[in-house]
Write a protein that binds this DNA or RNA. Structure first.
Length: 602
DNA sequence: CTAGGGTTAG
């Protein structure tokens, strides 16, 4: 350290005389020297030496800046900063502010709040510089009560008009899940900058309010005063992904190309995810292959994406590329790999990966991995083995696991194990009516009518609630939502007329409704009526009416596809000569010329 | 006198 420019400077600066003996002007100069000296420190070593020199010259300005430098530099130390801070007789607003910010920067939120309360107790006035950091602390602690109390105090002090304070409030309320409060702060602002938009858009996105996220973004674009930044566009892409809004996603891609010189890994990864989850697996793949630097998450997204499209072998290839590149797979990556094997029917590969995950990578399987394996094995006919796996699990099997087994039993007509699965679901107080229907249908197939009757009475007794099914479809960059059995949609009349027409055509192709999965205990005719109004069919009818001939149709839905919708859609793709892509809860189905990419294995 | 807010992927 000796002989570095900083130390030479210190010798020059050493002042034997007291500050009172210097003139005001030269005092200012010395202070500035002192400040720039501190700012040039690059580690604690250098800082301590500056500290030692400045100490001789007792000056509160210098002391304050010592605290600030030590607390806020990335090489600094909060302990050391605190020890200087505690030597100051009457620390003021600035000293407290910097200490609070320092604690927030190192994520010591409790200490930040403690200092704030000490500040209040000692009667030191807080100002608009105090609060952004404090709200960040509240946000990080998810401490709504604290945050609201401080917000109230700010109103009393009249500091609520500060832009920085407002932006940090938006974030704080968002993190605490109080989006209405974020919005109310946002709406009351007289001036907004890009950070305000960023905060409000990210808040909506992080709470899964995707449509709202997009409409706020639209508002920002219409208002036109802020450039769309990377981080904002990533939130927007995420919303497009979840809504299946491909056209909007494409526009966002164009916006990115126009506004950002070089896209970082996060932006690229979210773009890939958007394309893949909106059905454009090829586009996703080509972007992925052209990525200069990939990380664990990029691979994770690509593997999961290929899995969703039933392209198991390719997913395994990407996975092995990942290992070759020396990147560590985590549990999510393995979930992607296992799900790729699941949707691709790659049983041996799946079993092998499952074992290697534990043995070679030391990753303990979560309930989701088990769920995937049970489905994989059960679907492939290894129903007994799947049950074995469940029994050997170190964690308590959940509904998803048992339901996976039950559906395998339905498929392979294994009533004995099916009963075990159904019984376990009952013990977990499953409120899913589908479980009862599956078992009931299995009993019916075995002609065990007394069991069928028993299930019906039990269903009636429990009075089940069913998740309403819905489908989203994008037409001219707008997302339309159709709920099963919905008659209230503005386009309702046209849609049902179209459904009628479609059915006519389908009958010619030999279609007959498959009512076996209708969950209501009603007569055949009523079941057929319900089937007709499944949300996916409504969405398809709407898309057939409102898009040009031959244009592909993309639908995203919240539930798994029922058999009837699957058969129906295959036929529609032939009759109307349309490529139809449907994303359900777990995966994609690409319908074309009367066949589906899942090869009826899903 | 000095300093502050938002930020994103599965």
């Amino acid at each position: 350290m000796i002989g570095t420019p900083v130390l030479q400077k210190i010798r020059f600066l050493s002042l034997p005389e007291a500050p009172t003996q210097t003139t005001g002007l030269s005092l200012k100069l010395k202070e500035q020297e002192c400040l720039s000296l501190m700012k040039r420190c690059k580690n604690m070593e250098e800082f301590k030496q500056v500290h030692a020199q400045v100490l001789k010259w007792e000056n509160s300005f210098c002391a304050s800046n010592l605290v600030a430098t030590c607390a806020l530099s990335d090489w600094g130390s909060m302990d050391y900063a605190c020890s200087i801070f505690r030597q100051i007789d009457q620390p003021g607003t600035f000293e407290f502010n910097t200490m609070i910010r320092g604690y927030v920067n190192v994520m010591n939120m409790e200490n930040a709040l403690f200092l704030y309360y000490e500040m209040l107790e000692r009667g030191v006035e807080s100002d608009n510089f105090t609060y952004p950091a404090l709200f960040k602390a509240c946000a990080s602690l998810r401490s709504l009560e604290e945050g609201m109390q401080i917000h109230g105090y700010i109103l009393k002090r009249g500091l609520e008009g500060d832009l920085f304070v407002q932006n940090s409030l938006i974030n704080m309320y968002g993190k605490c899940g109080k989006i209405e409060l974020s919005c109310s702060v946002f709406e009351q602002m007289s001036r907004r900058d890009v950070a305000s938009w960023s905060a409000i858009i990210a808040a909506h996105a992080s709470l899964g309010m995707w449509s709202e996220c997009l409409s706020v973004f639209g508002e920002m674009r219409r208002e036109g005063s802020c450039r769309p930044e990377e981080s904002i566009l990533v939130s927007v892409l995420s919303a497009c992904t979840h809504l299946g809004a491909l056209d909007l996603g494409r526009c966002t891609h164009v916006t990115l190309l126009r506004n950002i010189r070089e896209m970082n890994v996060i932006v690229q990864t979210s773009l890939i995810d958007m394309y893949v989850k909106c059905g454009c697996i090829e586009k996703g793949l080509s972007l992925f292959q052209r990525m200069a630097r990939k990380n664990q998450l990029s691979y994770s997204v690509m593997i999961t994406g290929l899995a969703m499209h039933g392209r198991g072998m390719e997913a395994l290839q990407v996975f092995s590329d990942m290992l070759e590149e020396g990147l560590k797979p985590d549990d999510a990556v393995f979930l992607g790999v296992l799900s790729a094997c699941n949707h691709g029917g790659l049983v041996d590969e799946g079993l092998q990966c499952f074992n290697r995950m534990k043995l070679e990578h030391g990753i303990e399987p979560t309930i989701q991995h088990y769920g995937c394996m049970v489905h994989l094995m059960g679907r492939a006919g290894m129903v007994n083995e799947a049950l074995e796996l469940i029994r050997s699990m170190p964690i308590k099997p959940n509904e998803v696991v048992w339901r996976g087994l039950l559906s395998a039993c339905k498929f392979h007509h294994n009533l004995e194990i099916g009963e075990i699965a159904a019984k376990s679901l009952g013990e977990l107080n499953s409120s899913n009516p589908g479980d009862y229907v599956v078992l009931s249908n299995m009993y019916a197939r075995a002609k065990r009518w007394e069991n069928v009757a028993k299930i019906r009475t039990e269903m009636a007794r429990k009075g089940f609630t069913q998740t309403p099914g819905f489908s989203l479809v994008e037409v001219e960059r707008k997302i339309y939502k159709f709920v099963s059995q919905d008659m209230s949609h503005p386009q309702c009349k046209g849609v049902y007329e179209m459904i009628h027409q479609m059915e006519w055509q389908l009958k010619f192709e030999g279609y007959s409704p498959d009512t076996s999965q209708v969950l209501f205990d009603v007569d055949e005719e009523e079941k057929r009526q319900r089937l007709k109004a499944h949300s996916q069919k409504l969405a398809m009818a709407f898309a057939l009416i409102h898009t040009s001939q031959g244009a592909p149709i993309r639908i995203a839905r919240n539930l798994r596809m029922c058999n009837d919708c699957h058969t129906y859609t295959k036929l529609i793709s032939v009759i109307y000569q349309r490529e139809i892509t449907v994303r359900d809860r777990n995966r994609f189905h690409h319908f074309k010329d009367g066949t589906c990419s899942c090869r009826d294995y899903w």
